[in-house]
Nucleic acid binder design. Structure first.
Length: 574
DNA sequence: TAGGGATGCGCG
DNA sequence: AAAGCGCGCATCCCTA
């Protein structure tokens, strides 16, 4: 059952389902939603313009929602498919149609047939645009485009999932719900432990605001001494000044980057690198960060589904997706609770194996460690080579060890390598590529196209040709990676949606009082759970991973194992 | 002095 | 051992 949520012109709320439209005061929305969620049978799918705008209030009022359809996120996906710009006004306008669709036999995870819209039918039911602030009436992102695209795709073994875009719409929307829930419950964070870690590494917190820890000042002075400079004479935090100072000391450097400094043989380098590391920790995740972002034992970043073109999430506030390993010890379960930390082992190469139907690579991934499997296949000598080679293949590396290993990987895994090469060539030609579920890569810029055109003309200079070629290659590296990173993001969303669905119990009380998701990092999930329920949560994480593999790659021999650890602190997970 | 670009580095 | 993809954020530096 679809229920469309919209504002009414007089400030109330309109709920529309198959039985018609009702209007209710805005203050009663949460109670109504909660009641509908409690009704026996299949839970409704709430259709609204923006989960991030609508759901926090509902959740805060105790109305946890099982499924939704986020018009804004889905329109962004469909705009990519159609090659048009997303229409913000459209997402605020609710008008939809529901074609009679046979319920699929098997899709226990997502009942997504009801998210398929078809603009060609007469609208039933149709909801007029609500409030005075709404944009012009427009058809809601019809998934007609999705059906066309899906039908146009290959058939046969290993063909994309049927109605893939409808599945993507459901997964993206489920992610939006999870994002709001994770921000709401927050990541358990011990300010005390964080402070202890900082004190151990940097010394005590300086009393005066803005003052630097004494340890950092001392380390800076040592660097200056070893460079033969007066104390306080080198602004170590200014890259240009640092480069100048290093040059004065006879060191050939072109930048202040750590990896470049590491190659130098000079007594000042070791303390300098230590200084940079500690300085970074202080500015990015020091006491200021702690004051700003941790409250009542929780870190509550906002997650931004769909922030990245590939479909990965972004985050806003506190750098949630860049938590350095140095401070992960501060992520600490409540007393009597644990963190169940799971991550997908070698997710991207496994995704590539499945996308490309590479049987040899599927065999290499039969165990828990795909890279070890590649070594066992005889393609390369070491795990490190296997990893570097695969990363190079997926990112488009052209130099160093990864490029040297590539020919051997190509011989052993021709289908996988051909797949990413073809994605790269398509990008170089300015074409679109698609993820497994049909998210479409953006078009290169107008400037990019012009450059290619100019370079192709007879009048082009050698420099123009070089530049155009280099830009083409760069875009090819992007599309090469897009298919893998984007499909991996879809797997991860499906995984997360499955974990979320399996964890929730309507009888379990408020979300935070039962096992719940608290963190998501591209291929990694953390659940906060009462200790005695950890074994059950571990099983949920594994089972949802198996489901995700089936949802995206039904019939594929590629497995997607997850490593799971039950710990009190995040830093103990691996 | 506000703001945008560049740099560097954290994560996957 | 560093270079190839995608980000967010703090800081520096330059410009308007």
């Amino acid at each position: 059952m679809l229920i469309v949520v919209d504002r009414s012109p007089d400030g109330g709320m309109l709920l529309t389902d198959d039985d018609g439209t009702i209007e209710l005061p805005a203050a009663e929305l949460a109670a109504t939603v909660a009641a509908r969620e409690r009704e026996p049978g299949e839970p409704p799918r709430w259709v609204w313009s923006d989960t991030a705008a609508r759901y926090p209030e509902l959740l805060a009022a105790g109305a946890r929602v099982e499924r939704c359809h986020d018009l804004r996120l889905v329109d962004a996906i469909l705009a990519g498919v159609d090659g048009r710009a997303p229409e913000p006004a459209l997402a605020r306008t609710v008008e939809f149609v529901r074609p009679p669709m046979p319920r699929p036999q098997v899709e226990a995870l997502f009942e997504f047939d009801d998210v398929v819209f078809d603009g060609s039918s007469a609208p039933v039911p149709a909801v007029r645009p609500g409030g005075p602030d709404l944009g012009r009436p427009a058809p809601v992102p019809t998934l007609a485009a999705t059906q066309r695209a899906d039908l146009a795709r290959d058939r046969g073994p290993g063909a994309p999932r049927p109605r893939a875009l409808a599945l993507l719409a459901a997964a993206e929307s489920a992610g939006a719900l999870a994002a709001v829930e994770m921000q709401s419950t927050g990541l358990p964070w011990s300010a005390e432990t964080h402070d202890a870690l900082l004190t151990e590494l940097l010394g005590p917190r300086p009393e005066a605001p803005g003052a630097r820890p004494a340890s950092l000042t001392a380390l800076g002075a040592e660097v200056e001494r070893l460079l033969g400079a007066a104390p306080g004479s080198i602004p170590l935090d200014s890259p240009p000044e640092l480069v100048k100072a290093l040059r004065r000391a006879g060191l050939e450097v072109s930048s202040a980057r750590s990896w470049e400094l590491r190659r130098l043989d000079h007594p000042a380098i070791e303390p300098l690198l230590r200084y940079k590391k500690l300085s970074r920790l202080l500015s990015a995740n020091g006491w200021n960060w702690l004051d700003a972002h941790v409250r009542d034992g929780r870190f509550r970043p906002s997650y931004v589904p769909g922030a990245v073109v590939t479909g990965r999430w972004g985050s806003d506030g506190g750098g949630a997706l860049q938590l350095p390993k140095q401070i992960r010890g501060a992520v600490q379960a409540d007393p009597g609770w644990v963190l169940v930390v799971a991550d997908a082992a070698q997710l991207e190469p496994r995704i590539l194996a499945a996308l490309s139907h590479d049987a040899a690579m599927a065999r290499a991934g039969a165990g828990e460690d795909l890279y070890a499997g590649i070594v066992a296949s005889g393609a390369v000598e070491s795990r490190e080579q296997a990893k570097l080679g695969m990363l190079g293949a997926m990112y488009g590396g052209t130099t160093g060890q990864s490029a040297r290993v590539l020919p051997r990987l190509q011989r052993a895994f021709p289908d996988a390598i051909r797949f990413v090469e073809e994605a790269a060539r398509a990008g170089e030609r300015g074409e679109h590529v698609r993820t497994r579920l049909g998210r479409t890569s953006p078009a290169p810029s107008e400037a990019w196209r012009e450059r290619q055109l100019i370079a192709a003309s007879d009048a082009a200079t050698a420099a123009q040709r070089d530049e155009a070629r280099s830009a083409a290659r760069a875009w090819g590296r992007f599309t090469r990676n897009f298919v893998v990173q984007g499909s991996a993001a879809e797997w991860a969303l499906s995984w997360m949606a499955g974990v979320r669905r399996r964890l929730w119990s309507p009888e379990g009380g408020p979300l935070a009082s039962q096992p719940h998701l608290v963190f998501f990092l591209h291929d990694e999930l953390i659940v906060h759970a009462p200790r005695e329920r950890a074994p059950e949560v571990e099983q949920v994480m594994r089972a949802a991973a198996v489901d995700a593999g089936r949802l995206l790659f039904q019939g594929s021999p590629v497995s997607f194992p997850v490593t799971v650890a039950t710990v009190e602190r995040y830093s103990d997970a691996k």
